[in-house]
């Protein structure tokens, strides 16, 4: 009787050890042997930029499947901006030098167009500090017309993908601020970059001219 008990205990302990080994080795290795298993697993996983609805143009930045939140906290995909032209810039709200000037330039553009098929878009590159609430406050402080303006915040991956397609350079500094390019982008209705206006405090007539062509 005792013997049987001992045998069953040792048998089950070996079994347990086996199970533990299996679990550990499955979790612990990412080597070539498990590549196939990983492939099967990751087939379900979507990555950076999955195929969107077929009608998106080849150059449309709306192909990016990144996730954003608006100033009201509503989740939004870039593709939802389709249908209107967008005057768009990447900024951060605690920026003291360039971003206020960029927004100023965008407001200048706004004041000189009468058509209502153009919207304005600010995308934050500072996900830590620019929460929807911060963006809303920023919009109020800058007296942005919320019928035309949208402010978006997203995760770092979404921001880097968007920056990468726009050729927008940015770098986080140790003090928490950012170095970044100053670009005002003109997007057409399908989300293609129709024009890019570089620099600060320059005549915005070029943007207005480009808008006329669209």
């Amino acid at each position: 009787m005792k013997k049987a008990l001992i045998i069953s205990i040792s048998f089950s302990s070996i079994l347990l050890a086996g199970v533990i080994y299996f679990i550990i080795s499955e979790n612990g290795s990412a080597g070539i042997n498990t590549v196939q298993a990983k492939q099967i697993l990751s087939e379900k996983k979507s990555c950076c930029a999955e195929e969107t609805s077929g009608d998106a143009s080849e150059n449309s930045i709306y192909q990016l499947e990144s996730n954003w939140k608006t100033e009201t906290g509503k989740k939004i995909m870039l593709g939802e901006l389709k249908g209107k032209k967008q005057i768009m810039a990447m900024v951060f709200t605690s920026c003291t030098y360039a971003c206020p000037l960029i927004i100023n330039d965008m407001k200048k553009i706004e004041s000189q167009i009468k058509r209502n098929d153009v919207n304005f878009l600010l995308i934050s590159i500072d996900p830590k500090r620019d929460t929807p609430e911060t963006l809303m406050q920023y919009a109020r402080n800058n007296k942005l017309d919320m019928k035309r303006w949208r402010l978006l915040t997203g995760d770092e991956n979404s921001i880097s993908e968007l920056a990468a397609v726009l050729g927008f350079k940015y770098k986080k500094e140790q003090d928490g601020s950012f170095s970044h390019s100053n670009i005002i982008n003109v997007l057409n209705e399908t989300g293609e970059v129709a024009y890019q206006h570089f620099g600060l405090n320059q005549d915005v007539q070029d943007v207005l001219d480009e808008l006329k062509k669209l």
Partner: peptide, 8 residues
């Protein structure tokens, strides 16, 4: 360039 890149 200060005007092309902020903060640099």
């Amino acid at each position: 360039e200060r005007n092309l890149f902020c903060g640099s």
